[in-house]
């Protein structure tokens, strides 16, 4: 059992060595090639405007109300 564990550890260490040899470590001083702040601002601008769910519920309710009582539309518009 101990010998099996020893062999497993040995194999594991060998794979680690192979991995280290195949995949070089990233330099400690690696830095972006440019200032990324303008990209962040652009990304923030691209964010779609989110409408809260209760706003959609209100619009849906008004549409249903208008369909059920069309004569109430002028009264509703008068009070807007």
């Amino acid at each position: 059992m101990t010998e099996m564990n020893h062999n497993l550890n040995k194999e594991s260490e060998r794979i680690k060595e192979l991995l280290k040899a195949a995949v070089p470590r990233i330099a400690e001083d690696a830095e972006p090639s440019r200032d990324l702040w303008p990209d962040v601002l652009r990304r923030l601008d691209r964010e779609p405007v989110k409408v809260p769910w209760f706003d959609w519920a209100l619009v849906g309710g008004l549409v249903v109300l208008a369909a059920a009582f069309p004569t109430a539309i002028p009264v509703f518009l008068y009070y807007l």
Partner: peptide, 19 residues
């Protein structure tokens, strides 16, 4: 990955690539 990156020069380039 395979050219100068390996920390172990004893490991062949082909093995590094496959790894």
């Amino acid at each position: 990955l395979t050219a100068a990156g390996g920390s172990d020069p004893g490991v062949q380039a082909e093995i590094r690539t496959k790894t």
